[in-house]
């Protein structure tokens, strides 16, 4: 039973680390800041939560502290992404040429 938990935990860690890797790759590949924020925020949030769950399965006595870290990241990661996106938009951050529409800019000019 303990061995099975340990194996599941290690697998979750690998899956989480894979999502973190995707986040890094997204940062490199995406064409502009807003898409990079999207790639960076979502993948790292899930990746970290999965990895911490994996660690919790392998060391159950750390469960509460890991839960606290996971909750904190679930709350603050999107907030920092939004604050950064808003300030970048206000300062006129360049957008990718693929961008099809920007209602915020239209409304601000109106």
């Amino acid at each position: 039973m303990a061995a099975l938990l340990e194996l599941t935990g290690a697998m979750l860690l690998v899956v989480g680390a894979f999502f973190l890797l995707l986040g890094g790759l997204g940062l490199v590949r995406m064409p502009d800041l807003f898409n990079r924020i999207q790639a960076g925020t979502k993948t790292t949030t899930l990746g970290t939560v999965l990895s911490l769950l994996g660690v919790a399965l392998m060391e159950p006595q750390w469960g509460w502290k890991l839960l606290l870290i996971a909750l904190f990241i679930l709350f603050t990661n999107p907030i920092s992404a939004q604050v950064l996106a808003r300030s970048a938009h206000r300062t006129g951050e360049a957008k990718s040429c693929k961008t099809v529409v920007d209602r915020l800019e239209e409304d601000q000019q109106a």
Partner: peptide
């Protein structure tokens, strides 16, 4: 290229580092 890009990269790096620290603890 812009400062905001670097901040995003910094943010992602620290979140990855949190996982790395948990792994080291393990």
């Amino acid at each position: 290229p812009s400062p905001a890009d670097r901040v995003v990269a910094f943010d992602v790096m620290t979140i990855i580092a949190v996982t790395a620290i948990a792994l080291i603890a393990l």
